[in-house]
Computed example of a mutant assay.
Amino acid sequence: MWIAIVVILVPAIVIPLWVPLYDKVDPRLNGWPFFFWFQMAMILFATSCTVVAFTLSRIADRKDREARGASAGQGRVGE
């Protein structure tokens, strides 16, 4: 499952670094050049990828703890 998490996060990191992909003015969206509206769309895309990856990491961590025989709550200070 950890590999799936990496695969989910890689596009959110690589696409914004690939500048020739969005270094242009056209097509425009409601008068906004492509560069600007693409960056706004990437914020939403990266946020959704991060939320999905975080949720999967919580599930994977819980399964890893159960596989080792420890419950998710053990080992915390004060419990």
Score class of each variant (00 low, 15 high):
33 P>I: 02
49 C>K: 08
1 M>L: 13
1 M>Q: 05
19 V>M: 15
45 F>N: 00
4 A>G: 08
57 S>L: 08
73 G>C: 13
71 S>G: 13
25 V>H: 05
28 R>A: 08
70 A>K: 11
63 K>W: 03
18 W>Y: 05
11 P>K: 08
44 L>F: 11
37 W>C: 00
70 A>Y: 07
65 R>L: 09
8 I>V: 15
26 D>S: 11
22 Y>W: 12
67 A>D: 13
29 L>D: 02
17 L>A: 10
6 V>P: 03
17 L>R: 09
79 E>W: 09
4 A>E: 12
46 A>C: 11
76 R>P: 00
30 N>E: 10
63 K>N: 08
50 T>G: 13
17 L>N: 11
48 S>A: 07
65 R>A: 04
33 P>V: 04
50 T>R: 07
56 L>F: 09
43 I>R: 10
77 V>Y: 10
61 D>I: 14
10 V>H: 04
47 T>I: 07
7 V>G: 01
47 T>G: 12
69 G>A: 06
69 G>K: 04
74 Q>M: 07
35 F>T: 04
13 I>P: 06
40 M>K: 15
74 Q>I: 13
63 K>S: 08
19 V>S: 05
42 M>P: 02
15 I>E: 02
76 R>A: 01
38 F>C: 02
66 E>I: 03
64 D>F: 09
41 A>D: 07
20 P>Q: 02
24 K>F: 07
58 R>N: 14
16 P>C: 10
26 D>W: 04
77 V>T: 14
69 G>V: 08
50 T>F: 12
44 L>H: 14
36 F>G: 00
10 V>A: 14
69 G>S: 09
63 K>R: 08
31 G>M: 15
65 R>N: 03
22 Y>V: 04
27 P>N: 05
36 F>Y: 11
35 F>W: 13
39 Q>L: 14
44 L>C: 15
64 D>T: 08
5 I>Y: 03
59 I>T: 14
18 W>A: 05
6 V>F: 10
63 K>L: 14
50 T>W: 10
51 V>E: 03
61 D>L: 12
79 E>K: 09
12 A>D: 04
25 V>Y: 03
56 L>H: 07
70 A>N: 10
73 G>N: 13
40 M>I: 06
72 A>I: 05
64 D>A: 13
4 A>I: 14
59 I>V: 08
7 V>K: 05
59 I>Y: 09
17 L>P: 00
62 R>Q: 09
45 F>G: 00
